[in-house]
Design a protein around this nucleic acid. Structure first.
Lengths: 241, 241
DNA sequence: CGTTAATTTGAGACCATTCAATTTCGGTGG
DNA sequence: CCACCGAAATTGAATGGTCTCAAATTAACG
């Protein structure tokens, strides 16, 4: 397994968004990349750490989080394969939040310097990176709305809509069924709720035949219904470019 | 008042972060910019609109918001002079949220195309722009934490800490006293609370001698106390680079 | 299979909301 | 300069969504 192939998924994702020349492609694939594995809940990036490399998620899930001084945790975003989990750190230099592996995951670690050189050299790659960070930001904005103004049912429904759609776009899952190994506690930390209330809310969504969620598998039974409960509008994902 | 001078504050802010060559400076100042005024609550950017220009805030305040289908509003960020209020739109092409003027404000509107040309031409300018959008994103992340996991007192204290610090860094205000024409309803929409509860919470912060907030003027009486209540750590503002 | 993690259930408490009414403030015209 | 007006701020009381704490059940895993 040559290193170049590690970044193939990145090339594929970026080229769906904008035209990449042959030079662009080979420059991206020529980036030095090291495969790394992380176990469940392992820290991939630590708040306050200086950046030396950026990680592209190849397999598994990752989530960004911050810890409050009283130990409470807020999950800020959840990431799926082909996404960078810390691209912004490459530019800002210091991580302002933690990133953890959700389940067993694998990343391609690219030295920050090489990535920055690519950005200087290739206008397309640079734009693709910038867009990646901007879509991240757009998702953060929607999450502010989600935890700020929606009730428990809507928060969870919205989050599941987002994840289902993003997973679908990368070809993961089929028939509205996706691998989603989130514990209810993690789901609670992502929606600003407690695990107990998350449990009751999930039950209510299940009772109404909107979803099925067990054994780390999400099945959306009634997409329109879930979308409505979650007040979900996919514009913010910027995936139809 | 020549148009070039409109962007002087931008040059000043960016050059505090990274070195700008004489060429960079003149290229920035040569950008075509039109001064525009907005009245209180006027829409500056509308969700779903295609982008034709980016707005640099010169005077007054602006805030980003999204509306839920039931009419509720969540404010996503608050902007102060010398900041771009919609830089990300120039790249993504479609606005995914609204921006409104908080009080009477003035902006320098720069055509999207000219800004993108500058980004292609000047490595420093595009890095500065990218950093701007990344710091925005970092603030969004902190807001997710704020509305997701903090109680009412902490949310408001944290928001006031952030605004005070950002205002101070731009030279606005003195002796811990700042112009901050936020209504309690806007403060509520920014923290995911109701106006009524925001009122009671502000009273509790006042009662304890932490702040004074009236007539659109915020005075921080006990910075350490407020910081503690708000669980505030400024790392996420990335202003010490 | 035994052991720990994750999910589920119950009941009571509390923080924040809702609704409604009152007071204060800022601006305006007589 | 005062009377007036609408907006903003403030107060009260009742309601409710979510939390807390604790225990029981089920699932995951070596």
């Amino acid at each position: 397994m040559s290193e170049a192939h590690l970044l193939e998924p990145l090339v594929r994702r970026w080229s769906r968004r904008l035209p990449l020349s042959a030079d662009d492609r080979s420059a991206i694939l020529a980036l030095p990349a090291t495969k790394k594995s992380f176990g469940r809940d392992a820290y991939m990036v630590r708040e306050g750490a200086r950046t030396t490399e950026c990680n592209l998620l190849l397999r598994g899930f990752a989530y960004r989080q911050k810890l409050l001084s009283d130990g409470e945790r807020q999950i800020i975003s959840i990431h799926i394969p082909t996404e960078f989990i810390d691209l912004q750190n490459g530019i800002l230099g210091t991580a302002d939040h933690n990133v953890q592996s959700l389940n067993h995951s694998e990343v391609a670690a690219v030295p920050r310097s090489a990535l920055m050189e690519l950005a200087d050299k290739s206008a397309s790659a640079r734009l693709a990176m910038w867009i990646d960070t901007l879509i991240d930001a757009s998702i953060f904005r929607e999450w502010v709305v989600n935890v700020g103004r929606r009730d428990a049912r809507a928060r969870i429904a919205h989050l599941l809509c987002e994840l289902a759609l993003r997973l679908e776009r990368t070809g993961a899952g089929r028939d509205g069924s996706f691998d989603l190994p989130l514990t209810q506690e993690q789901l609670a930390d992502a929606t600003g709720l407690t695990a107990v209330h998350t449990n009751r809310t999930l039950q209510s969504l299940r009772r109404e035949g909107l979803i099925q969620l067990s054994n780390g598998i999400l099945r959306v039974l009634d997409w329109e219904g879930l979308r409505k409960v979650g007040d979900f509008d996919e514009l913010y994902l910027h995936q139809k470019i």
